[in-house]
Design a binder for these strands. Structure first.
Lengths: 347, 347
DNA sequence: CATATTGTTGTAAGCGCTTACAATAGATTT
DNA sequence: AAATCTATTGTAAGCGCTTACAACAATATG
């Protein structure tokens, strides 16, 4: 390995000090040029920039991070990237962060809040400049950790009024309620729900709550047996449908906690020979790209995933820069009525 | 802000030095315990660990990065996360990296290789311990950058034999060829292709090449007008279908570069009143979860996205640890024959 | 023209760890 | 028991930047 050692020696990286020497200025000046600090004369800047070009200097991020106490990256804690609605948000978040010259560290936790807390610890240890979380369901220790470090953070996706968690998101309950009201208005009286597991998932809880509110207000509350909770997935949705079909009094409409479950439900319904929506109405939540291409196209709620990513990026960067931003920002999540819902069958 | 200043003063973070003092050992010993270095007596370890617990010490990642020259994170360059096949890979990559106590920095580049190069520069500057890239289509400068820094890296998704780019992936050409052969065997003679743009995308090129090879070998080469290149998306697939239907001699089978395009093609075909596969056969590539739930279920190629993520994580970590791993690892991408393909119509 | 003010640059002290090397203690050999 | 070797621990010099502060120059003010 001698050759390798020699190489390593010859490969002396150019340091900021070398640039300073080359430009015949102090290291502080080079650093100021690099960081676009004020009070730098044009002459000096040009000399430094020329030296940087000549030497092909690239600053060392780790040294900069240690000295400046900012790493140039934020951390995002998301349940999973295996769900396109989250990956769409992360995609737009990352793209927008790039504009602010900020990188993105990702950590997933599979809806396990203890894992989330652990991942948060790791991110903080790495020195991230800010943190993005999904929803308001977190271990209390997570909040303590963020507050004690005075670390900028923002939640997203869910935005109920919560003094602890500043956030950018949308109301999950109201659109769910409207979806149910839409079905009730179409004459449905036996509603059923296929929901994602609600543990550690306030979005799922809020949607379920919205369904419940509407059902109760209309005088036809949801009995437990007509609320099925299943994991994320098309197959899971299909299974949920089958279990609902095993009931004595079958529902005439099924409200699903997300589009993917709705796809599964719809496929299973059609496989069972049911006409959608003539014999059974189905709703989703998310408005994934496929939703409008299903047959029939899915009635759902359009979740502004891309917009959330962008606004969270802007908002968190502002907070990192010490700018106070609104504690809560509510985006629109409009109902998208398509053809998977129709009048209740008259039996 | 006086109260704040006071707080900041009182909030003196615990440093490694404080732990050393508390445990009455040297800072080097604390560091050794922290890093599970060899030659640490049990007694010392226990004392240090007790002190760490007592003080609630959390090491500073940036200082550790500067001193040790590893940051505890790798960078992944992917075209986009808006495509579920990539986000599935990233999801499994991140989860597997966690096991190795390694974080993930994400950067997307929208298939723009100049953007990719720029993003690579930024990641290197951040000090990532390794880099994952997709495919072998990159600016030459990217390779130079990686080599000069002697930075461990691995490509994925595509794995042709290439001395420059070590990689873990699958053969994109052969399954594409097999798909086309499958159609030819079913009697189809007028094949068409709906491909993703091939610029900076060797996977798309390889698949197209596979389709071509089979078509030519069977004596019915693909004329240019029967090769449509469109951006990623269901709507884009649908549009491609319509442009193909404008041809004099319509194809009896359409090979799509990915499942999403195939969904679009299939929907447009059905909307146009065509029976799939009786009047037209359609194939995809990826085997997204929905593929088997389409009606009819989509014939496609199962891309091992999750397995790629895991193997890339293990492989890159090994390289970072100085372990030599195979230059190239080929995974299986099996054909999944379903009902969207059938005998050519006899007209 | 002396003085205050503002703008520009340099000096040098960290930032909080890791690790080469030195020192010491303990075990083993002869 | 002296000599040798090995396992353990400590000392201190960085890692490559940023930034508080000082110094000085240029400009404005009275």
């Amino acid at each position: 390995m001698e050759a390798r050692d020699v190489m390593n020696k010859e490969m002396q990286r150019t340091l900021l000090e070398d640039v300073a020497r080359e430009a015949e200025v102090s290291t502080a000046s080079v650093s100021r040029v690099l960081n676009r600090a004020p009070h730098v004369s044009k002459r000096l800047r040009e000399r430094v920039e020329a030296a940087i070009d000549r030497l092909g200097y690239v600053p060392d991020g780790t040294a900069r991070a240690l000295a400046s106490r900012r790493i140039g990256a934020i951390g995002a804690l998301v349940p999973t990237l295996d769900n396109p609605i989250f990956s769409a948000m992360i995609d737009s978040l990352e793209r927008r962060l790039k504009r602010h010259d900020c990188r993105l560290l990702i950590a997933t936790y599979r809806y396990d809040l203890d894992d989330e807390l652990q991942a948060l610890r790791t991110l903080i240890q790495q020195g991230v400049d800010g943190v993005v979380l999904v929803g308001h369901d977190h271990r209390p220790a997570a909040l303590t950790l963020l507050q004690r470090r005075q670390l900028p953070f923002l939640t997203c996706w869910h935005a109920e009024d919560d003094p602890d968690w500043p956030g950018i998101g949308f109301d999950n309950t109201a659109p769910a309620r409207h979806l149910a009201e839409h079905l009730l208005m179409l004459g449905h009286r036996r509603l059923a729900v296929v929901s994602a597991p609600t543990d550690g998932n306030d979005r799922a809880r809020a949607r379920l709550e919205g369904f419940r509110q509407a059902a109760e207000a209309a005088g036809c509350p949801l009995p437990p047996e007509r609320i099925v909770k299943v994991d994320y997935g098309i197959a899971e949705g299909a299974e949920a449908f089958e279990s609902l079909m095993g009931l004595d009094r079958r529902p005439t409409a099924i409200l699903c906690g997300n589009d993917t479950l709705a796809f599964g439900v719809m496929l299973a319904a059609q496989r069972a020979g049911l006409q959608v929506p003539r014999e059974i109405s189905i709703t989703g939540f998310d408005d994934l790209p496929q939703a409008r291409f299903m047959s029939p196209p899915l009635t759902t709620v359009a979740v502004p995933a891309g917009e959330i990513g962008r606004q969270v990026a802007d908002g968190l960067i502002a907070r990192i820069d010490g700018v106070t931003t609104p504690h809560r920002r509510l985006l629109d999540a409009p109902l998208v009525l398509r053809e998977s819902t129709g009048p209740a069958p008259t039996d």
